[in-house]
Amino acid sequence: MPLTGITGSPSMSLGHRTDLVVLRLTGSDITEHGPLTLVRTPSNPTYRWGNFVLVDDSDDGADWFEALGLFRSAFPGETTVRFGIAPSPPMIVLPGYIARLDLEGDVALVSDAAPSAPVPDGMTVRALEDDGDWAAAFELQRVNNGYEDDADVDFLTQQLAAYRGAVERGSGRWFGAFVGEALVGGLGVFSDGGPDARYQSVDTHPDWRRRGVASAMLAAAGRWALDALGAQRLVIVAERDSAAMRLYERLGFSEVDVQLRLSGPQSVLGL
């Protein structure tokens, strides 16, 4: 059955809505405070978008002072504030001091059918199976993201442990593209039993990009999510006009809405 307890607003972007599903499935604490939704991930405190306040600014404008107070009380000592904006544009009203923060928006895309793409010659696409596979997935993400210092490594360790936990509980699966014993690509797909299955963390090793790896993984994971999870549509999020977005559109995904986020140092707010 789909997870309950997080209603959101009817105008909440699909990106945020499916983010909340994956966050809950991977162990985050999510609580509603009127038009505000507090997301905390105690097991991974440096996970930026696992520790933030989601603001419903769709009607007469949210109380941003209340949002800031909730963030400060939930994350004492945090110098960077992070707010998700629940509605997709243009349904936002930002007061001047909040508009000083950096605004970013990613595009949510959907498809009601799994992509059609061949598996490149000499490659196998399958679900991760054991500790060795998950260790390879960790190393792939570490390399792709350039993680070197202890804080980044600890974040990634906790993040993949959370994904693996959700997989072992039956809420998703992590797929890898293998050439021999080497993992050259990976991604996850998750659902709470509702209509949407959400892709996560599409990664291809730098030496294997533009060779059909991501397409093959998206196809395999999409078929599995529609069949095994009973999903009715597949959801993926990408930066606008990025190579990833162009790939997803070629594979049949269509833009639905925009997922907005605000972040920046508390000092710029002047409060």
Rank of each mutant, 00 (worst) to 15 (best):
T46H: 02
L14S: 03
G122P: 04
L128C: 07
W208Q: 08
A62C: 03
W49D: 12
R100A: 05
L269W: 07
G77N: 04
A162M: 05
E66F: 08
E255F: 05
R24W: 00
V39R: 02
S58L: 12
A231Y: 02
N51P: 13
G77E: 05
F71Q: 11
L101R: 07
A114H: 03
V39S: 03
G61Q: 11
V213S: 01
R24Y: 00
P45I: 04
R211Y: 06
G146V: 02
R24Q: 11
V119C: 11
P120L: 02
L25D: 00
V268E: 13
I85R: 14
P89Q: 01
E249F: 09
N51G: 14
V125W: 11
D241R: 14
S191I: 03
V268P: 05
V53E: 07
G84T: 08
M245S: 09
V125F: 13
H205R: 11
S11P: 01
G212S: 09
W174G: 01
L94M: 06
G194Q: 10
D207Q: 10
G222D: 13
R233G: 02
P10L: 06
G270E: 12
R240W: 08
R142K: 11
L269H: 07
T46P: 05
F253R: 01
P42I: 13
T46C: 07
V93G: 11
L251Q: 06
Q159T: 07
P118N: 04
Q158F: 00
G77V: 05
A166S: 11
A243D: 10
F52D: 02
P89D: 05
A220L: 13
G77A: 05
P120M: 03
D112I: 10
E255A: 15
A135I: 01
W64T: 08
E139N: 06
V107N: 00
T37D: 09
P35V: 09
G172D: 04
T79G: 11
I92W: 14
F65H: 12
V235R: 09
N51Q: 07
I6F: 10
S201G: 00
A117F: 02
P2W: 01
E66R: 15
D29S: 10
L229C: 10
D152C: 05
R72M: 07
V258M: 12
G222C: 12
F190G: 00
G185A: 07
F253V: 14
L262N: 08
V55G: 03
G5Y: 06
R240T: 08
W64H: 04
D102P: 00
M123Y: 11
S116Y: 00
D19H: 12
L262A: 07
T4S: 14
D133W: 12
